[in-house]
Amino acid sequence: MNDNSEFDQLDKLLAQPAMIADRGFTEQVDQSFRKLKTSRRSIFLVAGLCWFALMIAVVSPQALYEDLLTMVMTLDAVGTFTYLLEQYQTFDTSKLQASYTSIAAIVFSVAAVISMLVRV
């Protein structure tokens, strides 16, 4: 057998690779996806509940409802921008009295948002 025909033979053998049988592999991977989704959903849920609980602890439920309503009403981009601009322009740092509770609420809210953004 000459060199070229040996290489041709080798190419033919290589072109027919033996394939690994599934034997439950796909189901195993599928279960991992479902676990991944469930744990991600749980983290989102816990983070959301923590955020909500903290908000209720810091402000009264009625005030929270009003804030949410205001937020919904200002959801259009121009409105939000104008609102934020007004808030920024009228913001008086001398009136800033940060209590420990509100600082904790801010810290936990940021942590909750970050945990929601971090992918599991």
Partner: peptide, 20 residues
């Protein structure tokens, strides 16, 4: 849709080559 079944079908389609 983050459809698990669709991705499982993709896994089934490619698993033998990737594993080999």
């Amino acid at each position: 849709h983050r459809d698990n079944d669709a991705f499982s079908a993709l896994v089934r389609m490619h698993q033998n080559k990737i594993r080999a």
